[in-house]
Design a protein around this nucleic acid. Structure first.
Lengths: 338, 338
DNA sequence: CGATTCATTTGATTCGTTTCAAATCGTTGG
DNA sequence: CCAACGATTTGAAACGAATCAAATGAATCG
């Protein structure tokens, strides 16, 4: 039986009341210097560690935040979590982490778990339609902030990136380096991000003084494997029908494309075909041909999401707000002009 | 003020006592079918959600496990966490996630946080020397399991991979595909894993009937950038002094090497130089030249670590034990014979 | 010197569960 | 018909920290 020392023991050793110990812990400025030091000495001596469950029960304030991520394997989300975690640690808050792998049941399970934990709030990059669930959480006093996705009717705060602008920037860049026959590789088109990036791409093509074609190569997901498959499909065509540039809706796709664009040990990228991705994950710069991409400020997204959440939990009357970051064009070898 | 409904409300609505409600929640088999259904109906009707803080306070059992990871950006650890999370969710346990980024202060902060939370246990891939800290946690009844690292004196359970065997397998494979001048790329040599992999490599060379040279190219870390740098250093040498194979101590290094091994748009890998990594992260297979590697069963590592932890917390008298997995050789294009 | 004020300190009460000894109820056996 | 038993149910007592009205003590003022 691990002899657990409580605030009571500390009080006894320090020769003060439990109320004073609690005050030293929570508002030392209202306690005499003498008491503070005696209590601290007692804490030290006993190796006392505050029991957060009791604190939370009585004070009604949790020191954890839940974060449900739909694709924990994607380095982009890894970075987002890192940003949130960084900010959280600054507030003495820990992150309850849940990965759903695009499984609605898991998503629900985590939200239930978080409700039992009475977390301070929830960050979520949602998979299924969970507005109803999040509403119910809110009725219980648990706010949520959507990450990398905006909610149609603005009932929840969100932190995301302007995908339309990103798509435009990508294609404008490809045009600037002299490409005219551009293929947009992405899918499924149920994903808002994919649709937006394509819309931006088309806008750039139409806005150009040159004649620029945008062809769509649809994929089933934003994964490396789908990228490889899409690349093979393109290479099957007669050489003169190849596009001279590919805009992939995500870096994972782009990495897959890159892998498929090797013929006889020689890379078609960037000379024959320019390639640009989206997200700027760490591996983009680390690819055999370093990948141009649109950087999402992933750390900042996580950090901001956590901040918004804390602000909202501090003042429940705040109305939800959207934060939209602008992506940033990062040019590397994969789109060098010929 | 979100009207929080308690077990008391449920009892009132169901027309039973709080004790019975608690029993329905925790040991329904000891309650009459009638009570069970009435209580469940009341729970449904009120939208009652158990308050885990109160439960933990009274029962003394937490439903969270802490996981401190030293490099959250490394996909390898991402997979390990995923494995642990998977197993945890099966037990209704959530994971408190902390990334230290090789920062001893952060590592300490998370352990403190976990202690306050009275987590069920701690999984940790340690950075600094934290045996003392973990001992203190244990005195408080919080057990720890080391992940991907073994503890010198066996005072803690650990789950890891046999790096010596992995190193041997890598070099045996390189020899089998006809390579004789092999460079081991890795560092720092303070890392147990690095030392072990090199030791395995040397053992393989010495065990061969052929004459095989193992040269060491030291790096400052197991990162992509260091890999690029190491690759450049090798290419600077006159061509006839190049090794004909590289064994990188991690896939991140190998990816960096791969990037540096492009000359005039043509890849030296695998024809001129074979390349093999370690870990088999998802991006290894997705590289421009799919990378051969030694697969660590990362999911299984996480899953096993969590299981060991739960077993130990269930029976505190269990003595620490080591679990060592064998790596598995995965052959891809980067080590194809010439 | 007593009254008043201000700064600290006190400790009983509370948060929502689990637990467990005691009470209740329906059966069964004598 | 009563005693004894097993199966359920009950409800008061924890768990450990936060809170806040009340008490204490020191300092100031008239």
């Amino acid at each position: 039986m691990p002899a657990t020392t409580s605030i009571r023991d500390v009080a006894r050793v320090a020769g003060v009341s439990v109320g004073t110990v609690s005050n030293v812990l929570n508002r030392p400025q209202e306690v005499s210097a003498d008491s503070v030091s005696r209590v601290n000495r007692a804490i030290e001596q006993l190796g006392y560690v505050r029991n957060d469950a009791a604190r939370q029960l009585r004070a009604g304030v949790s020191s954890t935040v839940g974060f449900v991520v739909l694709d924990g394997q994607n380095p982009f989300f890894g970075e987002v979590v890192r940003g949130a975690e960084d900010e959280a640690s600054r507030h003495g808050i820990a992150i309850l982490y849940g990965n759903t792998d695009e499984d609605a049941a898991r998503e629900g399970m985590y939200l239930d778990l978080f409700a039992e934990q009475r977390v301070r709030g929830v960050l979520i990059s949602p998979y299924g339609d969970i507005t109803a669930r999040l509403e119910r959480l809110r009725e219980r006093g648990i706010r949520s902030v959507l990450v990398d996705r905006i909610n149609g009717d603005g009932r929840f705060s969100s932190v995301s990136v302007d995908s339309v602008a990103g798509g435009r920037m990508a294609v404008e860049h490809l045009i600037a380096v002299g490409r005219r026959r551009i293929a947009f590789v992405g899918g499924p088109f149920g994903m808002r991000q994919v649709v937006d990036r394509l819309a931006g791409a088309r806008a750039a093509a139409e806005g150009s003084t040159e004649r620029v074609d945008i062809e769509v190569v649809a994929t089933g997901a934003l994964t490396v494997e789908e990228g490889v498959r899409a690349g093979r499909r393109i290479l099957e065509r007669p050489r003169r029908d190849w596009p001279d540039a590919l805009f992939a809706a995500s870096d994972l796709l782009a990495l897959g494309l890159l892998q498929s664009l090797i013929v006889d040990g020689a890379l078609l990228v960037p000379d024959e075909i320019a390639l640009i991705g989206f997200d700027d994950i760490a591996f983009a710069g680390a690819a055999a041909v370093p990948l141009s991409s649109l950087r999402q400020p992933s750390r900042a997204i996580g950090q901001t999401a956590l901040r918004v959440l804390l602000e909202e939990t501090a003042d429940p009357d705040l109305i939800p707000r959207r934060t939209v970051f602008q992506p940033e064009l990062v040019v590397r070898a994969s789109t060098r002009g010929r």
